[in-house]
Computed example of a mutant assay.
Amino acid sequence: MTPLQTLATASLGLALMTLPLAGMAQEAPESDPETGLVMAEGWETVRSNCTACHSASLVTQNSGTRNHWEYLIRWMQETQGLWEFQEETEATILDYLAEYYGPKEDTRRPALPRTLMPDNPYPTVADSG
């Protein structure tokens, strides 16, 4: 490579490094100062339906798949008196929760292998047989 080609390649590389990367530097959505909920599509529906019975912190401190959130809604409907949602309202709530409070891969350590666990001091079903 000639010195001129080396200089051109270096200049092009430097120029490319200064360009903004489309889609790479997205701003995090703003959170509602009152509830802590992410202010994105569907947040007001979640706020009005979920905080009617409990604090928004029960939402913001938890996470799960869409199926997990749906399970929790069904549990609240069956045991806590939560009303049945219109189909569109429930879909909005589930879409929002799955998107902004979905599974968190890096927040828990992996489970310890059984060999590193202490003995269980309590009787188990196997002990009662």
Results as ranks from 00 to 15, higher is better:
residue 75 W to P: 09
residue 71 Y to Q: 14
residue 63 S to I: 10
residue 87 E to T: 08
residue 74 R to A: 11
residue 72 L to P: 11
residue 103 P to W: 08
residue 79 T to F: 13
residue 100 Y to A: 02
residue 77 Q to R: 14
residue 71 Y to R: 15
residue 78 E to F: 08
residue 83 W to S: 14
residue 82 L to V: 09
residue 82 L to A: 10
residue 98 A to W: 01
residue 97 L to A: 06
residue 93 I to D: 03
residue 105 E to L: 10
residue 101 Y to G: 00
residue 98 A to T: 05
residue 106 D to E: 07
residue 91 A to Y: 02
residue 55 S to C: 00
residue 102 G to P: 05
residue 101 Y to V: 01
residue 76 M to S: 14
residue 87 E to F: 06
residue 92 T to W: 01
residue 76 M to R: 13
residue 64 G to L: 10
residue 61 Q to S: 15
residue 83 W to H: 15
residue 60 T to I: 03
residue 57 S to I: 02
residue 61 Q to I: 08
residue 103 P to M: 11
residue 85 F to L: 13
residue 57 S to L: 01
residue 99 E to N: 06
residue 101 Y to R: 04
residue 55 S to Y: 01
residue 58 L to T: 08
residue 67 N to T: 15
residue 69 W to A: 06
residue 99 E to Q: 09
residue 70 E to P: 07
residue 88 E to K: 05
residue 105 E to W: 07
residue 76 M to E: 10
residue 66 R to P: 10
residue 65 T to P: 11
residue 106 D to G: 08
residue 104 K to A: 11
residue 78 E to C: 08
residue 58 L to K: 01
residue 97 L to Y: 03
residue 87 E to H: 05
residue 84 E to S: 12
residue 59 V to A: 01
residue 105 E to N: 04
residue 84 E to Q: 15
residue 72 L to Q: 13
residue 87 E to G: 03
residue 94 L to A: 07
residue 77 Q to I: 12
residue 58 L to I: 03
residue 73 I to N: 07
residue 61 Q to A: 09
residue 69 W to Q: 10
residue 65 T to K: 06
residue 56 A to H: 00
residue 64 G to P: 06
residue 102 G to R: 06
residue 66 R to E: 06
residue 82 L to H: 10
residue 94 L to I: 09
residue 63 S to M: 06
residue 64 G to T: 09
residue 73 I to S: 04
residue 82 L to G: 13
residue 89 T to D: 02
residue 78 E to M: 13
residue 106 D to Q: 04
residue 94 L to C: 12
residue 62 N to K: 14
residue 67 N to Y: 11
residue 72 L to R: 14
residue 61 Q to E: 10
residue 94 L to H: 05
residue 105 E to I: 09
residue 100 Y to F: 05
residue 80 Q to R: 14
residue 60 T to H: 00
residue 72 L to S: 08
residue 60 T to W: 01
residue 68 H to N: 14
residue 102 G to H: 02
residue 85 F to Y: 15
residue 66 R to N: 09
residue 66 R to H: 06
residue 89 T to P: 01
residue 90 E to T: 05
residue 82 L to R: 15
residue 97 L to Q: 05
residue 71 Y to S: 13
residue 90 E to I: 03
residue 88 E to H: 11
residue 68 H to G: 15
residue 106 D to C: 03
residue 81 G to H: 11
residue 76 M to P: 03
residue 98 A to K: 02
residue 93 I to R: 01
residue 74 R to Y: 10
residue 71 Y to V: 09
residue 86 Q to F: 08
residue 86 Q to R: 06
residue 93 I to E: 04
residue 104 K to L: 12
residue 88 E to Y: 02
residue 56 A to Q: 02
residue 99 E to P: 01
residue 67 N to F: 12
residue 67 N to W: 12
residue 81 G to E: 11
residue 82 L to T: 09
residue 87 E to V: 09
residue 87 E to P: 03
residue 92 T to I: 04
residue 70 E to R: 04
residue 76 M to V: 14
residue 80 Q to Y: 11
residue 62 N to R: 15
residue 88 E to V: 02
residue 104 K to N: 08
residue 104 K to Y: 08
residue 84 E to F: 14
